[in-house]
Design a protein around this nucleic acid. Structure first.
Lengths: 278, 278
DNA sequence: GTGCAGCGATACCTGGTCGGTATCGATCTG
DNA sequence: CAGATCGATACCGACCAGGTATCGCTGCAC
């Protein structure tokens, strides 16, 4: 099985249409058809059921689609990392959600910079899905929030855990309470919970506002359009017109440092060691 | 970058000798040289330093070697899993170290078999390194012992934790103690700690005996040649001529269920759910 | 039911590339 | 300095990837 064949198969499996897949791949349809047929023949397995009107995945095809996606991103990751390792002074790319872990991040960067032989750390600020950045090699290490961010296939080390707070307009009746419960906020019909985009970039269904980052979120909360339950530390330096109320029964959130499992970079190992000692 | 090129590069990087690598790949040396050169040209990066007497890896080459190995095993895993998914009644392959988790395993298998729509579970008994079996697709799920077994790049769920015991000849002075410390056993000059093979199959340096499984190990302990500290549960049904003494300060061992992160198999999800409920 | 449009498969051609053999050039050994 | 070792280069034949033209099947419109 070759990368080329995998790329072709993934395209067809995602489009479920040979013509569109060929267009996406920048090639003509006939060689694509042939390549897929040949892949199936070599594996001795049907990956797609095709009529002249519809293409569907077989069970085996579904498995190969999942595995193939992982392999393709691993390949682009390998290229990126190899290329980066070839530069004179390879830097370390740390992915963090903007607005996250303010104090921890400062301490971590300071402590690591003091290490002998420390690499320069580039910060890759993102809205979410650091997971993908690690998988396809755009980042070397990431700070993420468990269990919200997926850590599938990553090595992690938990740095600390904290409770969660609800963010409400300062004028809201619940804002003056010293603590509340999940049920108190999730059942407010006038304040539906905000929705965040999934890994594909699309939003789940629901009544709440669609947001991408804390600034958007806080603005919408101030306008009385939505509310949210987030880790305590993300509510530091809150706007005057917002209030943070501890939510007793919200699941605790762990901030973890994560890296791809076969990373051999000395800088990653150093940074993780420093982080766990903080 | 194609799989073929990666396979070639990994072979050369491991052998550090074009001729031997070509032999291992079953091809002549010149096309191999050319393929590597071309890979380097396309990446725009030197992966190997070569004189006519010696081949060494560059930093970038080292990175690509690590990434490439992971990719190659992911590809063979993808083929195996796809092929397995194509069979009429795909079974679930569970990898366990022989002699491990006796009672837990029985309960797990029974509980899972009672699930509606349960797949048949094939047991893959191995000496160690279930990690590799999951990575290259020979197994779908595994039971492993943290922190001994590597769980890098796997999703895990901890089932339970337990203390460790030292296994000693029944006649040994320490055998009658109700508890001991690590220092007591690691410093016995006449009983050096047994050595287990690493992932490559080779043994670390040391004075202790080389063992592959519990049967071998227990025999050597009974003969007064070695000793070992292992999880409590592995000492159930111990031979008469051996004694198990709790080691107070040995790190606790967790038995976990592990699976590859992008596994979409329903059977894996079911088995994990059942396992965590035990 | 007939004609048409959409879609995947097939037939056939061309150029690139993969792998093989022969050989060169450099370097270490004795 | 002769010989051995090892990677690179030159050259050749076979194969295969990709392109165009076209076929055959299947819904659908009227």
């Amino acid at each position: 099985m070759e990368i080329r064949e995998l790329r072709y198969f993934v395209a067809v499996a995602e489009e479920l249409h040979f013509g569109k897949a060929a267009q996406r791949l920048g090639m003509a349809q006939p060689p694509l058809s042939r390549a897929i047929t040949q892949l199936e023949r070599r594996l001795g397995i049907a990956l797609l059921e095709r009529t002249s009107r519809k293409v569907t995945l077989t069970a085996a095809g579904g498995v190969l689609l999942a595995e193939g996606r992982a392999i393709l991103s691993a390949v682009t990751a390998a290229e990126r990392r190899t290329r980066r390792a070839a530069t004179a002074h390879p830097s370390l790319v740390l992915a963090v959600k903007s607005g996250t872990a303010g104090e921890l991040l400062t301490k971590l960067l300071d402590a690591y910079a003091a290490e002998p032989g420390a690499a320069t750390v580039e910060l890759l600020l993102c809205e979410a899905h650091q997971h993908q950045l690690l998988q396809d090699g755009q980042a070397d290490v990431a700070l993420l929030h468990l269990p919200f961010d997926s850590a599938a296939g990553l090595d992690t080390e938990i740095l600390y855990t904290e409770g969660q707070v609800a963010i409400l307009p300062a004028s809201h009746p619940l804002a003056s309470r010293s603590q509340i419960r999940m049920a108190d906020v999730t059942t407010l019909p006038e304040l539906p919970m905000a929705r965040w985009p999934g890994p594909s970039g699309s939003y789940p269904e629901g009544p709440g506002a669609e947001v991408r980052n804390l600034t958007q979120l806080f603005q919408l909360i101030a306008l009385g359009r939505t509310t949210v339950v987030i880790p305590e530390s993300a509510s530091a330096d809150l706007r005057r017109d917002l209030a943070a109320v501890p939510v007793l029964d919200a699941p605790p959130v762990a901030t973890a440092i994560a890296w791809p499992p076969h990373s051999r970079l000395r800088a990653v190992a150093d940074l993780v060691r420093v982080a766990t000692r903080l």
